[in-house]
Design a binder for these strands. Structure first.
Lengths: 244, 244
DNA sequence: TACAAAGTAATAGTATTACTATCAATATAA
DNA sequence: TTATATTGATAGTAATACTATTACTTTGTA
């Protein structure tokens, strides 16, 4: 019944990874429960990143994992559900990063800065080193395709099935830190979702449509970080009681 | 050779509408040059809004306009190009709205507020009353589907073909007003694109995923406006020379 | 160890989508 | 009037998005 005295970040991350509570309506058969399922998840990230979500098919994925379409259809209803699974996994993972990395911080200002760093992909090396999933590929998919999971005609049904819960959870967590920083700011939820979406959009623009940003694609994301920091804190400080 | 003394906003809008300089790589045959082409444009907006872009097919559109798939394929290479055409039309239109509505304003602050009103769909009644295009449907499509035109694997080629020029033009215009307001703010381009994207995202969230906003879907967009105003001006004022 | 039950994979299908090609009818322009 | 372009109708192909069937393999229990 006794726990080991030294629980390292890595150990904890692995434990977490072994138990990501995924919404079971996202799949027909739990991909975590079989080797072929895990392979579907891993290789779909690789393939989606390579050819883009629109060109991605279960046939191509089946060839990649040396199996058949029918097998994949036993795990996921269609490719949109699979994307939703991948994206949900990511939001779970990111939410965990925020919990873990802001855990021992006292000031909400520090916490928010840490959140910005996480959103702009400055993640702890140990935690980011997943044995199974290529997190770099994952991040690329998220930037380009994550919003497609809710930008659909059937968003209401998907929402009823709680598909966006991890995303909401992350935004709520950020929102709460904002409230901690400034209880008088009236738009914490909107500012949180704006922050998350902007982190991705600005990254995409920087790499693909640089006219829409002020940043250079120099491999470092320092500028996006500075921009988000400036944006968030100027908004939060504006409504802050000047006496504090 | 003399122009009529009284040029009304409506007249001018119609003139503009008759000559939107669309990128001719977006289509195979100019849809403005025939009745059937205009019908493709009009009805595709209606149909996309009704069934969503993913379910939208040229077959369904052909049935709607009482023509055949082959005819539509003579105008547009595929449905993604058609969406790009629709979205480009919208950015052109919005850019024009910004030009027209900020034209006679002196203070950049006023101009920015007007821009926010336009982005949150508070448009001049006369101008918004297009005989041919249902602008309400158009706005709905834009909110849900506009970002899909660039969130693809082939964004680089599309950018080379200048498909995103009207969007860039709008953002640059907003960026220039921001510079006018505060020449010292270093992120005008990013703030412009954030503003435009946020206006749409917050609207979508308000209607579909309210946990991600602080607004109620009461049919009015006043709150999104207040939020964007607060966000933009707090950012711009932060870097502003305190002596001004 | 035996044998049913359950799960898994491979094969083979169907319906729809995303196009392309052909050709005749019609409208238009030189 | 004759050439040219536009449309409509028909047909066809390749790929996609699935579903159904059947045969094989593992597992749980007597």
């Amino acid at each position: 019944m006794t726990l080991p005295l030294l629980i390292t970040a890595k150990f904890f991350a692995i434990v977490w990874h072994m138990q990501p509570k995924m919404n079971d309506k996202l799949f027909l058969k739990d991909p975590e429960q079989s080797d072929i399922g895990k392979n579907i998840f891993r290789k779909s990230i690789k393939l989606m990143k390579e050819i883009g979500f629109e060109s991605f098919t279960f046939k191509k994925l089946a060839d990649e994992i040396k199996s058949t379409e029918a097998t994949i259809y036993r795990y996921f209803e269609n490719k949109h559900r699979l994307l939703n699974y991948v994206v949900s996994w990511y939001w779970h993972w990111l939410d965990y990063q925020v919990i873990f990395q802001t855990n021992n911080l006292t000031h909400p200002e520090e916490k928010l800065k840490r959140v910005i760093n996480i959103l702009t992909w400055q993640i702890d090396g140990e935690l980011a080193d997943d044995q199974e999933i290529d997190l770099e590929d994952m991040h690329q998919i998220i930037i380009r395709d994550a919003s497609k999971v809710f930008l659909t005609k059937h968003v209401a049904e998907d929402n009823t099935d709680q598909f966006f819960k991890p995303y909401k959870s992350l935004c709520e967590r950020i929102s709460n830190i904002m409230k901690e920083y400034n209880p008088d700011y009236p738009y914490t939820k909107s500012l949180s979702s704006t922050m998350v979406e902007s982190a991705h959009f600005q990254d995409f623009f920087m790499e693909n449509l640089p006219a829409l940003t002020d940043f250079e694609d120099n491999g470092k994301l320092t500028d996006i970080r500075d921009y988000l920091t400036s944006l968030v804190f100027s908004a939060l400080n504006q409504h802050k009681n000047q006496l504090n």
